[in-house]
């Protein structure tokens, strides 16, 4: 299906690429691990988002995430090396996860001959996903390794993700709250809007209701200088995501908006009620 000369794209499960789209664009997704106590699951492989969010609400112990071992990623590269000689491997922000570091090690451990360019997306969720999609589309045109990798690196600088939260408890307990700590501890009930900026968790603002938080995200997207790609994703509120996408359809072609689901490896840190919009600037 993919010619031998075509650059192939590898990413990780926190990119939230819908499985159908991954298949269509030939993107290989490496699962992170999600662990509830002694039960270990491969994100999106042994554990679907539905199962995960159900467990997240009912389980007493908080799950944790861990990266795959370098050997596992090396294996993915080696397997793919039978179909291509060039791989661009795009990963969740190195400030939020060690996956990028592991991929660096994996490249050293490869057995097959294949060039691998690594890209730090400096984002997560569809903020990372849109970078991956842009790279995959470019690769399909037959563009060379360096150009695809550079395109991904440039896209990483123009990718935004805005996520509406009901609670910051998961972000706090998972230790990923970073600068969004400024939004913790409000006496009033608030709905924070948090994203990833320069690779780190970033506080965008807060509103007194979920509806208004979503309004604010809409305004953020609307005020971007340009929109090349747009994605809407949710943890467990599909209808809300559809409604938001319909609304975004007023400023960007509705049929081009990617609809996705927040993967368990991200859900561990953001909780079961988030809704997010990601946008990639460009034409």
């Amino acid at each position: 299906m993919w010619g031998f000369g075509v650059v192939r794209i590898v990413t990780d499960s926190p990119a939230d690429i819908p499985p159908v789209l991954a298949k269509e664009l030939g993107i290989v997704v490496i699962p992170l691990y999600v662990r509830f106590g002694s039960e270990v699951y491969r994100d999106g492989v042994d554990l679907t988002p539905d199962e995960f969010y159900r467990k997240l609400v009912t389980n007493r112990s908080l799950p944790v995430t861990s990266t795959p071992a370098p050997g596992e990623i090396a294996q993915v590269y080696d397997t793919l090396a039978e179909e291509t000689e060039e791989i661009v491997s795009i990963h969740v922000s190195s400030k939020l996860s060690a996956t990028y570091e592991v991929a660096l090690q994996a490249r050293e451990q490869m057995k097959k001959k294949c060039r691998v360019e690594l890209v730090d997306s400096m984002s997560g969720a569809m903020g990372e996903g849109l970078v991956v999609i842009a790279a995959a589309k470019e690769a399909r045109k037959g563009t060379g390794l360096e150009q695809v990798a550079n395109l991904a690196r440039e896209a990483a600088l123009k990718s935004h993700v805005y996520m509406c939260f009901d609670t910051l408890e998961f972000l706090r307990r998972g230790g990923r709250i970073g600068r969004a700590q400024a939004l913790l501890g409000s006496v009033l009930k608030v709905n924070p809007i948090i994203g990833v900026k320069d690779g780190e968790t970033h506080p965008y603002g807060r509103e007194r209701s979920r509806a208004r938080a979503i309004d604010r995200v809409f305004d953020f997207v609307k005020s971007l200088p340009s929109i090349g790609e747009l994605a809407v994703e949710h943890a467990s509120t599909p209808d809300e995501a559809e409604a938001l996408a319909d609304r975004l359809g007023g400023i960007f072609p509705r049929e081009r908006i990617y609809m996705s689901r927040v993967a368990p490896a991200v859900g561990v840190h953001v909780g079961p009620h988030v809704i997010a919009v990601s946008a990639l600037e460009g034409q």
Binding site: S66, T67, A98, Q105, I177, L184, G185
Partner: peptide, 17 residues
């Protein structure tokens, strides 16, 4: 083995900063 690819996380309180 895996420890070298992980990083300890600093806890945060639920209190305002």
């Amino acid at each position: 083995e895996q420890m070298q690819y992980r990083q300890p996380q600093v806890m945060s309180s639920g209190l305002p900063n």
